[in-house]
Each structure stands twice: as C-alpha cells, then as structure tokens.
C-alpha cells in the first residue's frame, strides 16, 4: 500500500529519495504506466517519488548532429515540436499513434523508454537510430547506448536510484526519408500488433543506406540487419522490397527462436504471415515519401 507520495524539486533529491527508500520506492512521471501496474498489482510500492514537475527535463533541442530530448517531454510535445517534425518525422508519426489523447498528454518519453514495452511505438523509432540515454544518480551520470539499456521484455539496466534524464538521437544523414507504420486492431487507443520504422537514404535513385526497426514481435524493437544489408546500394524496386520483406521474416523467425518466443498461437502466426507484405508496404511508402 502506498504510504507516502514524495515530490522532490531537484534531480539530486529525487535520486536521494529513491536511494533512501530502496526497493520500496517507485519513480513516477506521467503515471500512464505506473498507475496501470499499481492497478494490476504488478508493483506494490510503499513510496511513490513523483518527478513529473522537475524542471529542465522537458527540453527539445539540437546539439550539433544530435537531437536532445528531455525525459519529461510528453508524447503530445513530441507531436507538436517543429524540431522533431523536421528532423525525425517518424517520431512524430509514432507519437501520434500512441494511445489516446489523455495518454499522450500525460505520458512521457522517459516513461516509454524505461518501461521497455516490446510494442512501444516510440522505442521502435528510437531503435532505428543511433541513440543513447543519460542516467543520473547522486554520484553522477552514465551514458548508455539504447541497445544496451533495454535488456528484455519490459526490462532495462536502470538501477532503482537512477533517473533517465535525457535521450540523444544521432541524426541520420540529411535527406533521409523515414516513416513509421503500425498495425493495430482499432484506430485509436490501441497497442501495436506490429510496427515498423523505416529509414532510407537515397542518392541518384539508389539506396545508400537503409534501416529497419521491427516492433511488437520480439522481446524488444529490433533492427533487421539482413534486410538492411540487402537494400544497401540497390535500386529501389517492388521486387527488392518484397525480398527485403522475406529477409525480415527470416531474421525475425530466427531471433524469435533464439529468444525462446512462442510463435505458434494465432496472433503469432498472423504476425509472421503479415510481416513480409507489411515490410514491403512500408518500404514502398518510405520510398515514395518526399525528402
């Protein structure tokens, strides 16, 4: 049962309080995940440390070739940001597809990342980029690659007394086209059955570089490197994209096996039957996008 609700005013205080209360404390920001977990009895903290009103963690800015996003930037703020729209339009698209309006208004970027849901739309986009997260505690900070940070289904390497304060996205080369698409069961407030973030850099009608991040299939959003390799240095065509789709399917099946995931239920077999077509569709869409 929750016995105290703390609202520190500095990051340091927040870290200190988390350290003082140890495993009994849970950090909460927008509360869209935490309240769900409380409600379902998945967590049972006696202390909630609310960082939603901490100053300085809602910054969106460019630093050189990196886009810096504060962890308290809300999903709605991602959608509204002209900087995000200009440099990472796929992130806007993904943000728009998150939950309902209330959830987008409350939910934060940091919350999405630390809860590491395999179907999380924001994480799907971030996984397509070189991206790192900044974690602070009372002693200092550490910077981790996003891939190292997420260790499994809803699992990360964050310690209980650490706070995720910032995300740094290394921007792809100018002129890259990108898009995010998700398959869901209804048109709003619906989780991803599958999602894909796709990035294509084209020069002289040739793909210089391709990135594909597949979400909601494996333990976390996953880069589809086999297909990326195939696509590189090729001329875009429907056949090529269909081939890429098949490679994504093969890789996903292999990864699923090595991750010990069951793929035999109806949803699983649906996902795998859909996957090559979905990938080809999103690639086509990205290719047809204006730079």
């Amino acid at each position: 049962m929750i016995r105290s609700f703390l609202r520190p005013v500095t990051i340091y205080d927040a870290c200190q309080q988390m350290r003082d209360h140890g495993e009994n404390a849970v950090l909460v920001a927008g509360a869209t995940h935490v309240v769900n977990e409380l409600h379902r009895g998945l967590i049972n903290p006696s202390v909630l440390v609310d960082i939603y009103r901490l100053n300085g963690l809602d910054v969106i800015c460019m630093e050189g070739e990196e886009l810096m996003l504060g962890s308290l930037v809300t999903i709605s703020e991602l959608i509204a940001s002209s900087v995000v729209r200009q440099f990472v339009p796929a992130l806007c698209q993904a943000a728009q597809s998150v939950g309902g309006k209330q959830r987008r208004n409350r939910g934060t970027l940091g919350g999405s990342i630390v809860h590491a849901d395999p179907g999380d739309e924001i994480l799907s986009v971030l996984s397509a980029f070189d991206c790192c997260v900044v974690l602070k505690d009372i002693e200092g900070e550490r910077v981790l690659d996003l891939r190292e940070f997420i260790s499994g289904i809803r699992q990360t390497t964050i310690r209980n007394d650490e706070i995720l304060t910032e995300v740094r996205i290394r921007l792809p080369e100018r002129g890259s086209r990108m898009s995010f698409r998700k398959v869901s069961r209804r048109n709003a407030s619906s989780s991803s059955v599958m999602n894909l973030t796709c990035l294509l850099l084209l020069k002289d009608n040739r793909i210089v570089c391709a990135r594909l991040a597949l979400g909601s299939v494996l333990t976390k959003a996953h880069r589809m490197s086999d297909a990326e390799v195939l696509l590189a240095q090729k001329k875009p065509s429907r056949t090529l994209f269909e081939k890429a789709g098949s490679l994504v399917l093969n890789q996903a099946l292999q990864e699923a096996e090595s991750e010990g995931l069951g793929i035999v239920d109806s949803v699983g077999s649906y996902k795998f039957s859909l996957m090559p077509h979905f990938v080809a569709q999103v690639l086509t869409e990205t290719w047809e996008r204006k730079e």
Binding site: R185, R186, N187, A188
Partner: peptide, 28 residues
Amino acid sequence: ALTEDLDIEEGRIRNDNYDCYLLPTSLD
C-alpha cells in the same frame, strides 16, 4: 463485428479491462 472479443480460455477472461477489450472509438 470487428474489435470486441472476450479472450476466454477455460473460463478465464484474459482481456479484463478496456486496454485490451477493444470498444470501437470515435475514429472507428
């Protein structure tokens, strides 16, 4: 017709809240 479906296995309802029991929204 499309989205509402109680996921019941041997009498146990697995989608017991509105996050996974999908009523159509205004966009549907």
